[in-house]
């Protein structure tokens, strides 16, 4: 199980004067959940769009399941599924019709049956015959992800899957993502929520200023900081601390005192 599902080398992309990606490298092993973590506007969506053949990079290469995203775009599209930042569902159609639509476009056998199956899997049976315009945010997202699973894609891109969802809907999405990975699907997830990456991902890459500035398991990322010198209260650095330390003023990375003392003050008060 050490095959590579996604391979990205030296990816660069500019929008006019804005140099969004300045040489991005990473690999995602098959069947794992990989989280791209970064603030808004750091280029997470740009990477997802390049990998899902929607956007061409200025330089560098990217391959999904061994297929080049430019030269073998069609094979890439057969291997992937994209769940974009905003639930890409058809409001005027019913939930079931949305699923049947995608099933037909993916040329799977028995689209109606596939749709029924997914409706029950995603707890949308009662809503299946209602127009999506009447759905809540969480229901839309569930339908959106259900649409992405049709045709059993090997790799799924989830671009900020829980942005704008209430906590309950968020937990539901997390459950779905974990289940996907257990079934052997490779998941590339972008998020600006640190706890989401912490909860879901096997590996986490932090994207900042157009580059991956850290990439590893949660434990490895925690190891990037020198062991905490505990002064008042014993407390492991959370991923949030690591992220902010790495992303923020680099000079303050080693400045444990400031991080430590802030926590201590809070804890004392």
């Amino acid at each position: 199980m050490t095959t590579t599902a996604i391979h990205v080398r030296g990816l660069e992309k500019s929008y006019k004067d804005l140099h969004v990606l300045r040489g991005v490298d990473f690999e995602v092993a098959s069947g794992t959940i990989f989280a791209l973590l970064g603030s808004n506007g750091t280029g997470k969506t740009t990477i997802v769009k390049i990998l899902s053949t929607l956007l061409k990079a200025d330089a560098g290469s990217a391959a999904v399941e061994g297929f080049d995203v430019v030269g073998e775009a069609r094979q890439v599209r057969e291997s992937i599924s994209l769940t974009g930042q905003f639930a890409a569902v058809d409001e005027i159609l019913t939930g079931k019709e949305n699923l049947v639509l995608v099933a037909r476009l993916r040329h799977v056998r028995n689209p109606g049956h596939v749709a029924e199956d997914l409706l029950s899997q995603f707890d949308l049976v009662d809503a299946g015959s209602r127009r999506v315009a009447t759905y809540s945010g969480g229901m839309r997202r569930r339908l959106d992800i259900a649409m992405s699973l049709i045709g059993d894609p090997k790799v799924i891109f989830l671009d900020e899957p829980t942005t704008g969802l209430d906590p309950e809907a968020r937990l539901e999405v997390w459950k779905i993502v974990k289940k996907l990975a257990n079934q052997g699907t490779t998941v590339l997830l972008t998020t600006q929520y640190l706890d989401e990456a912490e909860q879901l991902a096997d590996r986490i890459a932090i994207l900042h200023s157009g580059r991956i500035i850290a990439n590893g398991t949660l434990a490895e990322l925690k190891g990037l900081l020198p062991p905490a010198k505990i002064e008042y209260v014993e407390k492991q650095p959370s991923l949030e601390d690591i992220f902010l330390a790495l992303v923020g003023n680099r000079a303050s990375v080693g400045d444990r005192a400031s991080v430590g003392s802030r926590e201590s003050v809070e804890d004392m008060s």
Binding site: L54, S81, G84, F86, A88, V89, L105
Partner: peptide, 13 residues
């Protein structure tokens, strides 16, 4: 705007 175009375009159609 709704992103459904991107969904279609990321599919093998």
């Amino acid at each position: 705007k709704s992103g459904i175009f991107e969904r279609f375009h990321s599919m093998p159609i």
